[in-house]
């Protein structure tokens, strides 16, 4: 008899605890947590070369990890990666499941309402990739893309950009670009190769890398689309100290020339004049 009452009341207590978000302990700034723990818990989705990906041993490499390693060394802490699918990164950051994310995030006004961004670590522009000689897609003008099929990675900035361009197209009485959303870059490339779509919209750096890794397929970038965007990392809005500390560390890497070196190594070119303030685009 007793055992059963214990079980029931424990179950009830667990459920009550789970539902009562108000019980949450007062949270210190994640920077204090990192220093106390001696390690930073960093979310990363290593499926986004050259920003973050893995080598043949499974180690996480790329532009973002190398910047992060320099910072961790400077702070004297370890990096504890939380490797996760991209769709979990921003929700997890908001919920505080980890300290911050070093996955390359396009800095957008919409995201800036929910999370804080570090200063930009690179800038980018989207582009249109198609197979060589595709008659349907010959340039990146949105009016000419109207009515074609395009592959995008789901929940990413290129997808959102194409969706808002679609709204403009239908407002102007033209056919929308039919968007097919995929989980990863190589699924979008596979869709292009299979002829399921006419083009792929993604970051120009990502597209260059994808082209280089599939030399068996003749592809070409027909042009840039949309406005230039800046890329940074994300921190929780409750952690202003961490955000400031990361910005200081990134500025230091920029001033020492280390950031430029890493850009040259991973992208093949240096990106100058990255803004340090007023970099959140207007909604």
């Amino acid at each position: 008899m007793d055992t059963r009452y214990i079980i029931t009341s424990t179950a009830a207590a667990v459920i009550a605890l789970g539902m009562n978000a108000g019980l949450a302990p007062a949270k210190a700034d994640a920077l204090d947590d990192i220093m106390e723990r001696g390690s930073m818990i960093v979310a990363i989705d290593p499926t986004f070369a050259p920003f973050e990906y893995t080598d043949s041993e499974g180690n996480i490499i790329g532009y973002d990890p190398e910047l992060l390693e320099a910072i961790a060394e400077d702070w004297g802490v370890e990096i504890d990666y939380q490797v996760m699918a991209f769709s979990g990164v921003i929700p997890g950051l908001i919920a505080g499941s980890f300290d911050f994310t070093a996955t390359a995030l396009n800095i957008t006004a919409e995201r800036a309402q929910k999370i804080d961004f570090t200063i930009p670590i690179t800038s980018t522009v989207n582009a249109i990739l198609t197979t060589k000689g595709n008659a349907n897609v010959t340039n990146s003008n949105i009016n000419d893309l109207s009515g074609n099929r395009c592959a995008v990675k789901q929940t990413t900035q290129p997808e959102q950009m194409m969706q808002s361009m679609n709204e403009e197209l239908s407002a102007a009485g033209m056919d929308e670009v039919e968007l097919l959303s995929f989980d990863t870059v190589e699924q979008t490339i596979a869709a292009l190769v299979d002829g399921r779509v006419d083009c792929v919209v993604d970051d120009i750096v990502v597209l260059h890398k994808a082209m280089a890794s599939r030399p068996d397929i003749e592809m070409e970038i027909v042009g840039e689309i949309g406005t230039k965007a800046v890329i940074g990392w994300g921190t929780n809005k409750d952690d202003p100290k961490l955000n400031a500390a990361l910005n200081d560390a990134l500025k230091k890497l920029k001033a020492s020339g280390k950031m430029g070196e890493l850009q040259e190594k991973h992208f093949g070119f240096r990106i100058d004049n990255l803004p340090e303030e007023n970099f959140i685009p207007e909604g």
């Binding site: 290593p46 893995t54 490797v83 996760m84 997890g92 980890f98 989980d183 990863t184 190589e186 490339i189």
Partner: peptide, 23 residues
């Protein structure tokens, strides 16, 4: 579980695929 940061068999495959571009 990959969306909540557990690298199990399938996501490990997705990560390799993202580097190697073959399935």
């Amino acid at each position: 579980a990959s969306v909540v940061a557990v690298t199990e068999l399938t996501y490990a495959g997705v990560v390799i695929q993202a580097r190697a571009f073959s399935a």
